[in-house]
Structures are given as structure tokens and as C-alpha cells.
């Protein structure tokens, strides 16, 4: 498996799209930090990049890479290698490269300019989001043999987690607005890692003061060490479950 990771990394580091991603992230983070003399404002603007761009690039890049490497994966399967090792190898390779891209593009500027607790939460959430969307991409990719359909499923997943879920949530909140929903929203946020990441970072930022009673309830939960452990565990589950399902499917998949 380590050999496969090694060769995937060797291949992917020459990938121009990955390079473009690093450049995009660096430009936006350095740009936002330079433009805003206030560091916390820079982080605040970067939050949009983290919650929208990072998941999108992670899931799309991975899906496209998977389908472009399809024949290579076939070649590997014909070798005396276990399928689970092949998939996990490719997964780790892609995941590590995207993590590296994230850390170079966003991590470095944040450590240079910020280096506060918010920054570390930001990097932790970003890393977890990257891995979650790489996992989801593998799930989308093994579900179909067709590249276009795979990319379509990935786009749908991204769209679901960044927008549709919140839309449904808003409607649910409206429908049950007569009930105290703060605790329910904590539970519901666990169903969407993007929301979870956003809340975790927001609560560490000044802006959380705007959140009033809802924020107080959140703070009570996410501010406690148990809450942090739970939310990070939930994120890790979001990393593990899609790739575990993808593995099960891949084991039986006809190539």
C-alpha cells in the first residue's frame, strides 16, 4: 500500500490542476490577509474559501483523478495486490496531496499572519473537510463506471452539503419555529460536516457574539472539551464512512 501511495504522490505532484489549486489558495489567502489590515477579517473572508472552494476542489479533483487513473487502477488490480490496498493507497495518495495543497495554500499564510486558536481550528476543520470530500469523491467514483456520471454525482454531493442541506434545514426551522430548536440544530449540524466546520470556527471568532441565544447554546456545547471531542469525532466518522462504503463496493466491482 505504501508503494502505491508513493507512486500516486509521484504522479499527482506533477499534476497541473493541483498546482493551480495551490496557487489559487495561496493567492486568495495572501490576498485576503494583505487586503485586510485586520487579521481576523482576513480569516473571516477565508472562511468562504474554506467552506465552498476547498470541498468543491477536493471532491471534483479526486473524482476526475480517479477516473483518469481508472486504467492504471485496472493495471494494479491485475497485479498481485489486494483491492483494498489499491483503493486505500490511491485514496491516501490523493488525500495527502490535497492536504498538502491546503496546508501550503492556506495553512502557511494562516500560520504566518494569524497563528491564533481560530487559525488552528480553521486548519483542523479544513484538513478534515478535505479528507471528507476526498472520501465522498471515492464513493461517488466507485458507484459508476462513467466519468461524466461520477463527476455529476460529486457535484450533486457538493451542492447538497454546501447548499441544499442548509436550505432544507432553514425550511425545517421555519416549520417548527414554535419549538426551541437550538439543541436540534446541534444534532442536525452533525449531519453536515460543512455546517459542523463552520460552527466550530465561527464560535472561536468574534462574530459569534452576533449569534445571541442560539450562539450561547452552541457555545455551551462546542465550547466544552466534550463538545469539541464529539464534533471532531463526528467529522472523522464523515471521513471514514464514505471511504469504507467505497471500499466495500470496490471489492466487488467489475473493472
Amino acid at each position: 500500500m505504501y508503494k502505491i501511495i508513493k507512486y500516486v504522490l509521484h504522479d499527482i505532484f506533477r499534476n497541473r490542476i493541483l498546482l493551480a489549486y495551490v496557487v489559487l489558495l495561496s493567492l486568495s489567502s495572501f490576498g485576503l490577509f494583505m487586503m485586510n489590515e485586520d487579521v481576523s477579517k482576513g480569516i473571516s473572508s477565508l472562511l468562504t474559501v474554506l467552506l465552498i472552494v476547498v470541498p468543491m476542489v477536493s471532491i471534483l479533483f479526486t473524482t476526475i483523478y480517479f477516473f483518469n487513473s481508472y486504467e492504471f487502477i485496472e493495471l494494479l488490480v491485475a497485479q498481485p495486490l489486494k483491492r483494498s490496498n489499491i483503493l486505500l493507497g490511491v485514496y491516501s495518495g490523493v488525500g495527502l496531496s490535497l492536504l498538502a495543497a491546503f496546508w501550503v495554500g492556506i495553512g502557511l499564510p494562516i500560520i504566518i499572519f494569524d497563528g491564533t486558536v481560530v487559525g488552528w481550528y480553521f486548519l483542523l476543520s479544513g484538513s478534515l473537510l478535505t479528507m471528507i470530500f476526498v472520501s465522498l469523491a471515492f464513493l461517488a467514483s466507485v458507484l459508476t463506471r462513467d466519468k461524466t456520471r461520477g463527476i455529476g454525482i460529486s457535484m450533486l454531493l457538493w451542492f447538497y452539503f454546501t447548499l441544499i442541506f442548509d436550505g432544507i434545514l432553514l425550511m425545517v426551522l421555519f416549520a417548527f419555529s414554535d419549538y426551541p430548536l437550538e439543541k436540534l440544530t446541534i444534532f442536525l449540524s452533525c449531519l453536515n460536516p460543512v455546517d459542523l466546520a463552520r460552527i466550530m470556527i465561527l464560535l472561536k471568532m468574534d462574530i459569534s457574539a452576533l449569534m445571541g441565544y442560539t450562539g450561547a447554546v452552541f457555545n455551551q456545547f462546542f465550547g466544552s472539551s466534550l463538545g469539541i471531542v464529539i464534533s471532531i469525532s463526528v467529522m472523522l466518522i464523515w471521513v471514514a464512512v464514505p471511504i469504507a462504503i467505497a471500499l466495500r463496493i470496490f471489492e466487488r466491482k467489475n473493472l
Binding site: 467552506l51 426551522l173 442560539t214 450562539g215
Partner: peptide, 9 residues
């Protein structure tokens, strides 16, 4: 409680 969606897409 919609403030939950602060800074969301």
C-alpha cells in the same frame, strides 16, 4: 435560530 446559518453559502 436561523442565525445558525451565519456565514453559510
Amino acid at each position: 435560530s436561523a442565525v445558525f446559518l451565519l456565514r453559510s453559502f
